[in-house]
């Protein structure tokens, strides 16, 4: 597939996509708040999937996650330009300042769920998740602090994260 497929900016030069790949944190916060609607989330995933399938192997393997985010970002962008101009929250500045009230409420609810999911984790698992994601500690540092191996740290991190994600299940759709 030609790269143009993933670049809707070409059709709308007056409004290029504002996110860059490195900004995917912002994008995902955006996804979080925007895709509270299960149908939207499903459709986005379906479309992203189809575009992934069309991607050439070499391009995908270069950095699959970044590639997926780029697709998701373009999809969101396309989705926004297809909306009436009245709702125009897509801009380069921090999402929090631009987000509609209900989006902020959705994000706040998401954070509440996350906090409570963390409290329900076994202590060691919670420690690993927060030390890595909040405090930026490496697997090795965490292992030393908790007296466990780095591979054990990784395992706790993955399971802890999965629990948090499942606790937040409906923010991006899901069977429940």
């Amino acid at each position: 597939m030609s790269p143009a497929r993933e670049a809707p900016a070409g059709q709308r030069p007056e409004r290029p996509p504002v996110f860059s790949v490195s900004q995917h944190a912002k994008l995902l916060a955006f996804l979080n708040a925007r895709l509270a609607n299960e149908q939207d989330a499903r459709e986005l995933a379906q479309e992203a999937y189809l575009r992934l399938l069309r991607a050439t192997r070499a391009r995908l393997i270069e950095d699959p996650a970044a590639y997926l985010f780029r697709i998701a970002r373009n999809l969101l962008y396309e989705w926004y330009v297809s909306l009436p101009p009245a709702s125009e929250p897509l801009s380069g500045s921090a999402p929090s300042s631009d987000m509609a009230v209900e989006e902020q409420a959705a994000l706040a609810q998401h954070m509440d769920r996350l906090e409570s999911a963390l409290r329900q984790l076994p202590p060691k698992r919670r420690a690993v998740v927060l030390m890595h994601r909040r405090d930026g500690m490496t697997y090795k540092e965490i292992g030393a602090a908790l007296g466990i191996s780095a591979s054990m740290v990784k395992k706790h991190l993955a399971l802890g994260l999965a629990c948090c994600r499942l606790a937040c299940a409906d923010f991006s759709g899901g069977e429940r």
Binding site: A29, L68, R165, G173
Partner: peptide, 10 residues
């Protein structure tokens, strides 16, 4: 995408 969103909001 959902897991990454949680990952990034942590």
């Amino acid at each position: 995408l959902a897991a990454a969103a949680v990952w990034d909001s942590l």
